[in-house]
Simulated assay, not measured.
Amino acid sequence: MISQGLEGYGRFGSLSRVELERFFHLDDEDRRLIGKRRGDHSRLGFALQVVTVRHLGMFLADPLDVPVELVDYLAEQLGIEDPSCVKQYTEREKTKLEHAWEIQQEYGLSSFAAVESELSAWIADQAWVTGDGTKAILEGAIAWLRDRQALLPASPHWSGWSPRDGRPPTGGCGGRWPTR
């Protein structure tokens, strides 16, 4: 997994061929699920969602908001001659949502909402016990979510707090991350 850091939270950076081959290879299980889709655009869009959630820990609001080299690499693996067909994937809004739900189920991913209260308790403990700064606690929270195969929230901010502005959340560590 490529470390994105807080600056790259929820976004892809540039990807080298080595990184593509290392982190975005489709295995047999991926190909089995992708193969159930009809149409190249649907297979490629589904594949993008699989590798996105695996890499970023979340689904993107726009599943096509990825580097072109990633689209090309997945198309190459799937034998899709025209990667630009993926533009059709988002024509039907429900498709990306249905695919995200199926991927979540098939890969055993928990929703953020399902673990949010447990995470809030963990954050409270970290704030009181470790003396770590807000950035370290947030990075720990991301690792905590990944260890539990839980989806990350759409934003690393909660209750108006951001690790970038250095202010702690109100009430010690209280507040919650929006699930958007």
Rank of each mutant, 00 (worst) to 15 (best):
V66F: 08
E91D: 13
E98K: 14
S120C: 07
Q77V: 01
R92F: 06
S84C: 02
S159D: 07
G171K: 08
R164D: 10
G140S: 14
T95F: 05
L152D: 02
P63H: 04
T170C: 15
Q104P: 07
E98T: 11
W122P: 07
A121H: 05
E139W: 00
E139K: 14
E118Y: 02
R54V: 00
T170M: 15
L74T: 04
L145W: 00
H41E: 09
I142K: 03
A47I: 00
L119E: 04
I137E: 03
G108I: 02
C85P: 01
V68A: 14
Y73F: 15
F59G: 12
G133W: 00
V86T: 05
V51P: 07
L97E: 12
F59D: 05
G45Q: 04
P163K: 13
E118I: 03
V66G: 13
W144L: 13
Q104V: 03
E139Q: 09
A113C: 07
F59N: 06
S111T: 03
G79W: 00
L74Q: 06
A150Y: 01
Q126T: 06
W128M: 13
K135N: 03
H157S: 11
G160I: 08
Q88F: 09
P168S: 13
D125Y: 09
Y89Q: 03
R43M: 07
V115F: 06
L56Y: 08
D62L: 11
D82N: 13
R146T: 07
E118C: 11
D82A: 12
H99D: 10
S84A: 15
Y89W: 04
A47L: 05
C85K: 12
E81Q: 15
C85T: 06
R92A: 15
V86C: 14
S111A: 11
H157D: 09
R148H: 13
F59E: 06
E81T: 04
V66K: 08
W122K: 15
P63G: 08
E69V: 07
Q149I: 05
L151G: 04
G160Y: 00
L119N: 02
D147I: 02
H157R: 11
R54W: 00
L56V: 04
A113R: 10
K87F: 02
L56Q: 08
P168W: 12
R54K: 13
P156C: 14
W158V: 11
G57Q: 06
A124F: 01
E93M: 14
G166K: 14
V86M: 08
Q88P: 00
R38I: 08
D165L: 13
R38V: 10
P67A: 11
G133F: 01
T90W: 06
E81Y: 02
V115W: 01
L97C: 05
I103A: 11
G39L: 04
P153Y: 08
P153T: 06
P67Y: 00
L151A: 05
L74Y: 04
S84G: 05
G166W: 02
L78F: 03
G160L: 05
P168Y: 01
L48T: 03
L151Q: 05
W144D: 04
L138M: 15
S155N: 05
E91N: 15
S159Q: 11
D62E: 07
V71A: 13
